[in-house]
Protein backbone atom coordinates (compact mmCIF):
# COMPACT_ATOMS: atom_id res chain seq x y z
CA UNK A 1 0.00 0.00 0.00
CA UNK A 2 1.27 3.44 -0.83
CA UNK A 3 1.87 5.80 2.05
CA UNK A 4 -0.13 9.00 1.76
CA UNK A 5 3.06 10.89 1.00
CA UNK A 6 3.85 8.52 -1.88
CA UNK A 7 0.52 9.16 -3.59
CA UNK A 8 0.41 11.31 -6.69
CA UNK A 9 -2.19 14.06 -6.25
CA UNK A 10 -1.95 16.45 -9.20
CA UNK A 11 -3.62 19.82 -9.37
CA UNK A 12 -7.07 18.57 -10.40
CA UNK A 13 -10.53 18.51 -8.87
CA UNK A 14 -11.53 15.50 -6.77
CA UNK A 15 -14.87 14.02 -5.75
CA UNK A 16 -15.59 12.34 -2.41
CA UNK A 17 -15.66 8.96 -4.16
CA UNK A 18 -12.10 9.39 -5.44
CA UNK A 19 -12.82 10.34 -9.05
CA UNK A 20 -10.72 13.16 -10.46
CA UNK A 21 -12.05 15.78 -12.90
CA UNK A 22 -9.95 17.92 -15.21
CA UNK A 23 -11.20 20.90 -17.21
CA UNK A 24 -10.09 20.85 -20.87
CA UNK A 25 -11.57 23.55 -23.14
CA UNK A 26 -14.92 23.53 -21.41
CA UNK A 27 -15.04 19.72 -21.26
CA UNK A 28 -14.29 17.58 -18.24
CA UNK A 29 -12.07 14.51 -18.34
CA UNK A 30 -12.68 11.96 -15.56
CA UNK A 31 -10.77 9.10 -14.01
CA UNK A 32 -10.00 7.67 -10.57
CA UNK A 33 -7.26 8.81 -8.23
CA UNK A 34 -3.96 7.17 -7.45
CA UNK A 35 -5.32 6.42 -3.96
CA UNK A 36 -8.37 4.68 -5.43
CA UNK A 37 -6.38 2.49 -7.81
CA UNK A 38 -3.96 1.60 -5.02
CA UNK A 39 -6.82 0.56 -2.74
CA UNK A 40 -8.59 -1.45 -5.45
CA UNK A 41 -5.52 -3.37 -6.52
CA UNK A 42 -5.21 -4.88 -9.99
CA UNK A 43 -7.99 -3.51 -12.16
CA UNK A 44 -9.07 -6.31 -14.49
CA UNK A 45 -12.18 -4.83 -16.10
CA UNK A 46 -13.75 -1.40 -16.57
CA UNK A 47 -17.35 -1.05 -17.64
CA UNK A 48 -18.03 2.34 -19.22
CA UNK A 49 -21.13 4.01 -20.71
CA UNK A 50 -21.79 4.80 -24.38
CA UNK A 51 -20.92 8.21 -25.75
CA UNK A 52 -24.08 10.29 -25.90
CA UNK A 53 -25.55 9.06 -22.62
CA UNK A 54 -26.37 11.68 -19.99
CA UNK A 55 -25.93 11.32 -16.23
CA UNK A 56 -26.63 13.55 -13.24
CA UNK A 57 -23.84 14.50 -10.87
CA UNK A 58 -23.32 11.61 -8.44
CA UNK A 59 -24.99 9.06 -10.74
CA UNK A 60 -23.25 5.74 -11.47
CA UNK A 61 -21.65 5.89 -14.93
CA UNK A 62 -19.80 2.59 -14.81
CA UNK A 63 -17.95 0.03 -12.71
CA UNK A 64 -14.34 -0.79 -12.10
CA UNK A 65 -13.54 -4.38 -11.28
CA UNK A 66 -10.51 -5.71 -9.46
CA UNK A 67 -9.69 -9.36 -8.85
CA UNK A 68 -11.54 -9.07 -5.55
CA UNK A 69 -14.30 -6.52 -5.90
CA UNK A 70 -16.59 -4.56 -8.17
CA UNK A 71 -16.97 -0.85 -7.41
CA UNK A 72 -19.17 1.86 -8.84
CA UNK A 73 -17.90 4.91 -10.67
CA UNK A 74 -19.80 8.13 -9.89
CA UNK A 75 -20.12 11.26 -12.08
CA UNK A 76 -18.10 14.04 -10.42
CA UNK A 77 -20.11 16.50 -12.56
CA UNK A 78 -23.37 15.92 -14.42
CA UNK A 79 -23.50 16.00 -18.19
CA UNK A 80 -23.34 14.17 -21.49
CA UNK A 81 -20.67 11.57 -22.25
CA UNK A 82 -18.61 12.81 -25.20
CA UNK A 83 -15.94 10.09 -25.21
CA UNK A 84 -14.94 6.95 -23.34
CA UNK A 85 -11.45 5.50 -23.11
CA UNK A 86 -11.64 2.54 -25.51
CA UNK A 87 -8.09 1.47 -24.56
CA UNK A 88 -9.32 0.28 -21.17
CA UNK A 89 -11.21 -2.57 -22.80
CA UNK A 90 -8.00 -4.30 -23.79
CA UNK A 91 -5.74 -2.78 -21.15
CA UNK A 92 -7.65 -2.14 -17.91
CA UNK A 93 -4.33 -2.12 -16.03
CA UNK A 94 -3.76 1.41 -17.38
CA UNK A 95 -5.99 2.52 -14.49
CA UNK A 96 -3.29 1.22 -12.14
CA UNK A 97 -0.22 2.27 -14.06
CA UNK A 98 -1.32 5.73 -15.22
CA UNK A 99 -4.48 6.78 -13.36
CA UNK A 100 -4.27 10.46 -14.37
CA UNK A 101 -3.05 9.84 -17.92
CA UNK A 102 -3.79 6.87 -20.17
CA UNK A 103 -6.03 5.43 -17.47
CA UNK A 104 -8.68 8.18 -17.94
CA UNK A 105 -12.26 6.92 -18.28
CA UNK A 106 -14.68 9.44 -19.79
CA UNK A 107 -14.92 12.97 -21.19
CA UNK A 108 -18.07 14.84 -20.19
CA UNK A 109 -19.81 17.87 -21.64
CA UNK A 110 -20.75 19.40 -18.28
CA UNK A 111 -24.28 20.59 -17.68
CA UNK A 112 -23.12 23.13 -15.11
CA UNK A 113 -19.46 23.98 -14.70
CA UNK A 114 -20.12 25.34 -11.20
CA UNK A 115 -20.31 21.70 -10.09
CA UNK A 116 -16.62 21.41 -10.91
CA UNK A 117 -15.72 24.36 -8.70
CA UNK A 118 -17.58 22.76 -5.82
CA UNK A 119 -15.33 19.66 -5.90
CA UNK A 120 -12.25 19.40 -3.71
CA UNK A 121 -8.94 20.81 -4.84
CA UNK A 122 -5.82 18.70 -4.40
CA UNK A 123 -5.00 20.15 -0.96
CA UNK A 124 -8.52 19.44 0.30
CA UNK A 125 -8.44 15.93 -1.15
CA UNK A 126 -5.10 15.23 0.48
CA UNK A 127 -6.56 16.42 3.79
CA UNK A 128 -9.46 13.96 3.40
CA UNK A 129 -7.04 11.09 2.69
CA UNK A 130 -5.03 11.99 5.74
CA UNK A 131 -8.27 11.87 7.75
Amino acid sequence: MKEIDDLTIPDLRFAQDHEWAKLEDGRVRVGISDYAQDQLGDVVYVELPQAGETFEQGAVFGTVESVKAVSELYMPVGGRILAVNEKLEGAPELVNTDPYGDGWMIVVEPADLRQLDALMNSAQYLAVLKG
Binding site: D17, I32, S33, V64, K68, A69, S71, Y74
Partner: peptide, 17 residues
Protein backbone atom coordinates in the same frame (compact mmCIF):
# COMPACT_ATOMS: atom_id res chain seq x y z
CA UNK B 1 -20.38 -10.69 4.43
CA UNK B 2 -17.20 -9.65 2.73
CA UNK B 3 -14.05 -10.78 4.46
CA UNK B 4 -11.97 -8.31 2.54
CA UNK B 5 -13.69 -5.17 3.87
CA UNK B 6 -12.94 -3.26 0.69
CA UNK B 7 -16.55 -2.23 0.75
CA UNK B 8 -16.42 -0.84 4.20
CA UNK B 9 -13.61 1.05 5.77
CA UNK B 10 -11.32 1.26 2.76
CA UNK B 11 -13.94 1.58 0.10
CA UNK B 12 -13.11 3.93 -2.64
CA UNK B 13 -16.38 4.90 -4.31
CA UNK B 14 -18.66 4.06 -1.43
CA UNK B 15 -19.54 7.39 0.12
CA UNK B 16 -16.96 8.45 2.61
CA UNK B 17 -18.47 8.16 6.02
Amino acid sequence: KNPFVLHEKHAPFSRLR
